[in-house]
Design a protein around this nucleic acid. Structure first.
Length: 424
RNA sequence: GGAGAAAUGGCAGAGUGGUCGAAUGCACCGGUCUUGAAAACCGGCGAGGGUCACACCUCCGGGGGUUCGAAUCCCUCUUUCUCCGCCA
């Protein structure tokens, strides 16, 4: 959520930048925000004055009672009725205005960073980096869902029986390989200074609100109605919310966390080859990195996160590329996002395996995540997060790129985690 | 799940209807003293709104109510603790 004060001071810039996102009616909404905010402040001032007056009278009554002048006090009491009615009216008005203001602010996405390219679809994303050799596969190489069946390491049918489509069952070396990846990722992240955390997989409304999934995107989350909780779509939600309503000291920066969680996504509406196998699931595992940074350092931090994910993919020897998401594809809450895609050789397409973003103060504003700056004033911190990494597609990438006629090789860095060097 | 107790500033902890945004201690920041440090002493020290700055307003777990006036009384929700039950 953007700050009204910021919108007020940088109105032109905000409208101009939001155009990059093809955000309709930006100017109209911004004007409306500013108008309501002014109204809100005026109403607040009026209310404050009424309250000040009645506070004053109350104190006088108190003093009169203490000095035994009961009659005078009773007289004064009568004066307060009108003030009460006024303050009730004004505070109702204020609450309505605040609600209207919030409703508008929830609709406004984050302001894209200057690096964000214009564009409308994923085709307009900018490829900023590419690395790794795309292997030449043997004749008759298979897509991962066929390999999964051939070597009996992932069972999609069983998952259908137990739950439904999009909930695979990993078996034997498939399960081991996945666990190995989780441990490897966590170890890499920990070595890079990210403190490991284990967090709840169900969150309350306030948490969903803090990171921006609520109020508008509840459709992407599974809702446990009996207890009004949501299954997390990503570890970002519980991990970032660890810092909801927190006032940090400058010396607390940087805050670095990593966590492994399953992720649950409803993702209605997709079908076909693009959702085959592990390409898109309702439940998948992911290791996440989260940072909370001083505003001056957040872009440096973003680069560091990108560098970190690069290193992991390099070690896994997977061909990948990095995209800078365009205005039409970048997430609602993000100011700048880099997507990592691994090349799925057997499917001949790129699969998104990581998304690294700087949210600047957009989440912090909702989270009330602040720090005391050098002048001793409270200032919103910057939040960032990234996947390092999303498991299923990394798994798909490994299965497909490492397949041979005699089986699937295990990337060297993983062998000490799996305890085997091939699946056959 | 049942019964009882509790929730106050970074922490501990007073405050049960009136100049209480809140005593006191610790922590923290600044100063005096000291070669330096510690100790001692002096001063400062919650958050949000509002203002050029003041004033002023709001906040004592959340929400609602009683009252001229609520940290204090009432209702409700949440959380924590103790006892019982159940359980990995």
């Amino acid at each position: 959520m953007l700050q009204v004060a910021y919108i007020k001071e940088h109105k032109g810039h905000v409208i101009e930048r939001l155009a990059i996102r093809n955000f309709a009616n930006a100017e109209a909404i911004i004007n409306q925000v500013l108008a309501i905010d002014e109204n809100r402040r005026n109403t607040q001032t009026k209310l404050d004055n009424v309250l000040a007056e009645s506070n004053k009278i109350s104190k006088e009554i108190g003093m009169l009672f203490q000095s035994g002048e009961r009659q005078k006090a009773t007289l004064l009491k009568e004066k307060t009725g009108q003030l009460k009615a006024q303050s009730k009216l004004l505070s109702e008005e204020l609450a309505t205005l605040q609600e209207e203001l919030d409703d508008l602010l929830y609709q406004i996405p984050n302001i894209p960073n200057v690096l964000v390219p214009a564009g409308t679809t994923e085709d307009d994303n900018e490829v900023v980096f590419k690395e790794g050799k795309i292997p030449t596969l043997h004749k008759g190489a298979l897509p991962h869902w066929e390999l999964a069946k051939k070597y009996d390491i992932i069972d999609f049918e069983l998952g259908n029986k137990i739950t439904g489509a999009g909930f695979p069952v990993y078996k034997g070396k498939g399960a081991k390989l996945q666990r190995a990846l989780i441990n490897y990722f966590l170890d890499k992240n920990t070595a890079a200074g990210y403190q490991e955390v284990q967090v709840p997989h169900l969150v309350n409304e306030a948490s969903g609100f803090g990171t921006g999934q609520l109020p508008d995107k509840e459709g992407q989350m599974y809702h446990v109605t009996g207890d009004n909780l949501y299954l997390i779509p990503t570890a970002e939600v519980p991990v970032t919310n660890l810092y909801r309503d927190v006032l940090l000291k400058e010396s607390d920066f940087p805050v670095l966390h990593t966590g492994y969680t399953p992720c649950f996504r409803r993702e209605a509406g997709s079908y076909g080859a693009h959702v085959r196998g592990l390409n898109r699931l309702h439940q998948f595992d992911k290791v996440e990195i989260v940072r909370i940074e001083h505003p001056d350092n957040s872009y440096e931090a973003l680069d560091a996160m990108v560098g970190h994910v690069k290193e992991i993919l390099r070690e896994l020897k997977l061909p990948y590329r990095i995209l800078r998401l365009c205005g039409g594809d970048i997430g609602f809450t993000s100011a700048l996002t880099y997507d990592f895609e691994v090349f799925s050789t057997a499917q001949d397409r790129w699969l998104e395996i990581s998304s690294v973003s700087n949210f600047e103060t957009f989440q912090a504003n909702r989270l009330k995540l602040r720090f005391k700056n050098a002048e001793g004033k409270s200032e919103l911190a910057h939040t960032l997060n990234g996947s390092s990494l999303a498991l299923p597609r990394v798994l798909a990438g490994i299965l497909e790129n490492y397949q041979t006629e005699n089986g699937i090789k295990i990337p060297e860095v993983l062998q000490k985690y799996t305890g085997f060097d091939s699946i056959d």
